[in-house]
Design a protein around this nucleic acid. Structure first.
Length: 555
RNA sequence: CGGGGCGUGGCGCAGCCUGGUAGCGCACCUGCUUUGGGAGCAGGGGGUCGGCGGUUCGAAUCCGCCCGCCCCGACCA
């Protein structure tokens, strides 16, 4: 492909408002352009990368028996009313009416549609198992799109759905997807974690997120020994031991105006772990509950919800049992104690304004409701907490959609059962952005070979019509005939500008053909990752084999 | 939704406080020179200053309303 006729608008300067590396570089390299908040156009070079990722996903999902199809984005609202999500999802679901005034939605995901079709078709256990998937646009009216293509309001997702007769079948489908996802992300050249994740209130029995660590990541992943990885929303680890409260501090403590843990600990001259703080919440079935964590810890609301077994909301000022800032354990309010609260003496709220008190916490029941933090350990090894992009997820849906949408089958004895489902998503755009984030250097992008927009960036020096330009064109032809994707920079630009653009665009192998090449009979070659010059270069004539070797070696 | 910021040629910005002919760098066009790391000289084109309204002899500049976009937080099937 000739760069002079390619719609590839590279920029010297990043957009003024860009923060994330991938946002800056993808715009500068001419891969994407913004149309509105969270709305991005993929330009030709960027789309090539996107589609390479798509093709890798397609091959691996096909390999585990997935059948590709395509479902509409525009959908009747009624389908979403039947699943209950028309009401529960909120403003993130784009709603509209058609010309007849019928309520419609722009689908943010396709559980409803696929389950509807499955319900129409599946009759018998003989129709199972089944795995359907598609690549389709999702519409989500995100409250805050950010960081280029990392979080957008419209994006393409590969979503697959498994249909099985029972939990055991689902477990197998889930495992197949889990392994396929490993192959996909490995082939895409990414560093990633398979992390335990929140199953939410959907009642699913399992979920993992595939997380690509990078600076622009929006999620925190806790990584521990033995391959442990979990979204911080659900992660567990051992706290550092708390410090011992000095015996000299005892009884009722006058603490006027000292509301926060920091203030009280500072005033007493003790570590924050000597305190226990209350987090009052209200639940449907239990009413007011006081949740206690150590002073130096934070309540993890998702883990708390799991521990409580029901949704909760923070208690309002008029609902709590005592003055704000001075709450302590009370016999008349049910309590939840975090695991890190070992039996012993602690400073707690005194239950009256301006007083704290020292109490002895006994050896009662505990729950894991705090957020993992740096310094925590697993089996004695400190965990790390890394920002990461969620590039894929796998989720055991169970019968969450098959029941309301009446997707059932008859077993061998003629009994009707709801189909057991799983759903599995990958965002190719995020895979692309993660690859940019993980491998960019000070000069630009450095694509993993498998998803690079081209295999070779052929820099043709000299004006059109010169011998060196002709030699570059001939080499391009030869490489193309050998099945190699080549971008030839035939623009009438200075050498420096061409080199700089090549580094920005990040194609794995750069060949340069100039006058020197005519003398030596070979094009200079440079591997983008690490910028290493290749000894001897590539022969101008008959160089395809050498290029193939170099590509094999390229990361 | 809360907080902060920004809208001036394609990109990045100055000008606004203190109202008076809309500027700079890059990019673009033409010519000549140059040609292995973002060239030089000369000439040239392009902007309803986000929108609407107000104040004023006069508004990019002051005032009001609205729109858009970014960042932090909340939210995230």
């Amino acid at each position: 492909m000739r760069q002079s006729s390619l719609f590839l608008p590279t920029e010297r300067q990043p957009p003024a408002d860009a923060e994330a590396i991938s946002h800056k570089l993808m715009v500068r390299a001419g891969l994407v352009r913004q149309l509105g908040a969270g709305l991005w156009t993929w330009l030709p070079a960027g789309w090539r990368v996107h589609e390479k990722v798509v093709q890798i996903i397609r091959e691996e999902i096909d390999a585990i028996g997935g059948q590709e199809m395509l479902m509409p984005v525009l959908q009747p609202a009624d389908l979403w009313r039947r699943s209950g999500r028309y009401e529960t999802v909120g403003d993130e679901l784009m709603r509209l009416q058609d010309r007849k005034g019928a309520d419609m939605v722009l689908a943010m995901t396709h559980e409803e549609a696929v389950t509807q079709h499955a319900a129409q078709v599946i009759r018998s256990y003989r129709d199972l198992p089944l795995c359907l998937y598609h690549f389709q646009i999702k519409e989500r009216d995100e409250p805050r799109p950010r960081a280029g293509v990392l979080r957008t309001r419209e994006f393409i997702m590969k979503d697959s759905y498994s249909f099985d007769a029972d939990e055991a079948g689902l477990d197998e489908a889930y495992e197949r997807h889990r392994l396929a996802y490993h192959r996909i992300f490995e082939r895409c050249g990414l560093t990633f974690y398979e992390s335990h994740s929140d199953v939410g209130m959907m009642g699913g029995s399992g979920a993992h997120e595939f997380m690509a660590p990078c600076p622009a990541g929006e999620n925190d992943v806790v990584v521990g020994p033995g391959g442990y990885s979990a979204n911080i929303e659900v992660a567990s680890a051992d706290s550092r031991p708390g410090e011992r409260l000095p015996d000299t501090i005892d009884g009722r403590l006058h603490t006027p105006g000292l509301i926060t843990v920091e203030q009280v600990a500072g005033s007493l001259g003790v570590d924050q772990s000597c305190l226990i703080k209350a987090f009052p919440v209200v639940t449907e079935s239990r009413g007011l509950v006081n949740v206690f964590v150590r002073g130096d810890h934070k309540v993890n609301e998702i883990k708390l919800q799991t521990a409580l077994g029901e949704a909760f909301r923070p208690a309002g000022a008029d609902e709590i049992a005592g003055p704000a800032g001075y709450l302590g354990p009370r016999d008349d309010v049910p309590s939840v104690y975090d695991e890190a609260i070992t039996p012993g003496r602690y400073v707690v709220g005194g239950g009256e304004s301006d007083y704290h008190a020292v109490v002895v916490i006994g050896d009662g029941p505990r729950s894991d409701v705090r957020t993992v933090e740096p310094g925590d350990t697993i089996d004695g090894t400190p965990v790390t907490i890394e920002p990461a992009i969620e590039i894929g997820n796998i989720f055991k849906l169970g019968t969450r959609y098959s029941e309301p949408l009446d997707c059932t089958y008859l077993d061998a004895s003629g009994q009707s059962h709801p189909v057991v489902m799983g759903s599995y998503g990958i965002g190719p755009a995020r895979v692309v952005a993660a690859a940019v984030e993980q491998y960019a250097d000070e000069n630009g992008i450095s694509w993993p070979r498998a998803i690079a927009p081209w295999d070779v960036h052929l820099i043709a020096l000299g004006k059109p019509g010169t011998p060196e330009a002709d030699a570059a064109a001939a080499l391009e032809t030869e490489l193309i005939e050998a099945g190699i994707d080549v971008l030839r920079d035939d623009r009438e630009r200075g050498a420096g500008e061409k080199f700089a653009d090549a580094e920005l665009l990040g194609v794995p192998l750069r060949l340069t053909v100039g006058r020197r090449s005519l003398d030596s009979g070979s094009a200079e070659a440079q591997i983008r990752r690490g910028s290493a010059e290749v000894e001897g270069g590539v022969p101008l004539v008959g160089g395809a084999e050498r290029v193939r070797e170099l590509l094999e070696q390229a990361p």
